[in-house]
Amino acid sequence: MYQEILKKYEPTKDNLIYILHDIQDNDPQHYVSESAVQSVSEYLRIPVNHIYGVLTFYTMYSTTPRGKNVIRLCESPPCYLRGSDNILAKLKNTLGIKTGETTSDGLFTLELCACLGLCGNAPVMMINDDFYGDLTDDKIDQIIHNIREAK
């Protein structure tokens, strides 16, 4: 099932990062599964443990299934200065989960991340590929509400 993605790339090791991105982006649960790793390993002829080494090194990858919407809240100093810890508490409260967990309806996963480079609008978070800045408790309510409605 991963052949469609794999055959877009030359079977050389320097394509590993892109292949993993591509697989994860096309997975409804935003992760790279064990069977995907196996397929990549066979295609690129590199050991499974090398691939897991890479997967667990970079923060954008996940080896466990995640929610439909992956929330990544920045906790770097500029966001911290503007109250990112309050926003984290608000998110945990609203979603009823801890950092790293997924809601039982499979809609949200909450993660922390390092600087996203939108510090002019701190505190900032990303939900999948979209940025949300100047966060307040009210904004969080609204954003989460909108996504829940839209499902």
């Binding site: 770097s76 100093p77 390092a114 600087c115 480079g117 510090c119």
Partner: peptide, 11 residues
């Protein structure tokens, strides 16, 4: 690979 907290000049 701009990642220094507080930096977004390259972006």
């Amino acid at each position: 690979d701009e990642g220094e907290p507080g930096t977004f000049k390259d972006r």
